[in-house]
Amino acid sequence: MLKGRHLVDPQDFSIQELESIFELTQEIIDKPEEFNSICHGKILSTLFYEPSTRTRFSFEAAMLRLGGGVIGFSEPGSSSVAKGESLADTLRTVAAYSDIIAMRHPNEGAPKHGIQYCPVPLINGGDGGHQHPTQTLTDLFTILESKKRLDNLTIGCCGDLKFGRTVHSLIKAMSRYENVKFILVSPKELQVPDYIRTEILEQRNIEFQEVERLEEVIDQMDILYMTRVQKERFFNEADYVRLKDSYIVDLKKLKDAKEDLAILHPLPRVNEIAVEVDDDPRAWYFRQVKNGMFVRMGLILKLLGVK
């Protein structure tokens, strides 16, 4: 039963609960007209303490496509937060006006703190470099759509794995499925945080390898999850110059990849996926971005108990 629940961490929901969201999401994709007024009279608040395009738009579009209303702010300067209001008080107040809240916050753990004061469902729309569970729902749904399964997969994660919260959430979520292996491709200074390695991968005995170069391992992958590597994240210029091309996917690298590889990216991309890849059947990232809205529609319906 997901009615009234919060979504803070990708592991908050059981595998069965995730399946129920994905089934509903597929129904919405198949018959959108049956859902276009189902949330009439309901209000979603979007509290975005830092900028976002995709996440905020997809939440708002999701609620509007369900026939509900949306209120909120897209930067805290225009709210009472600028006057020094605590997060706890802001959430108590906003919860009085709305049926469900989506929040992005620059501080890690903000939603975990916030749910103590929030009587309506609170959805974590990203907290610092920590977690981004609705992106994970989107990623899982897209993996399911492309591979027809969530188990028995070799998942490559490439780029900035230290600060990339979408990768942390994806590893947490996918590590619950049978026989999932990870290949983590990043420069040494941008490897996954210790808690992901110790608490998730090692404690659960999940097979994983950490490598520096994508071209060495791309042939083993069923899924390639790309993220952006920013130059300023490198400790020195020499490493950046040495490794920068290893974190770019182009048709040349894809020659070694499986025919049915699915390339995902949380977007925005800069140059880590060459534009020439966009027309390759293995490119799933634009499908993925659309799925983001449909999955959020399914999630809102479940948390509101409407469906």
Binding site: E108, G109, K112, H113, Y195, T198, E199
Partner: peptide, 16 residues
């Protein structure tokens, strides 16, 4: 988190 090594994690952000 780890009794032997005396490692804790923050309940909010998971930092070790």
């Amino acid at each position: 988190l780890d009794k032997e090594k005396g490692i804790y994690k923050c309940e909010y952000c998971d930092h070790i």
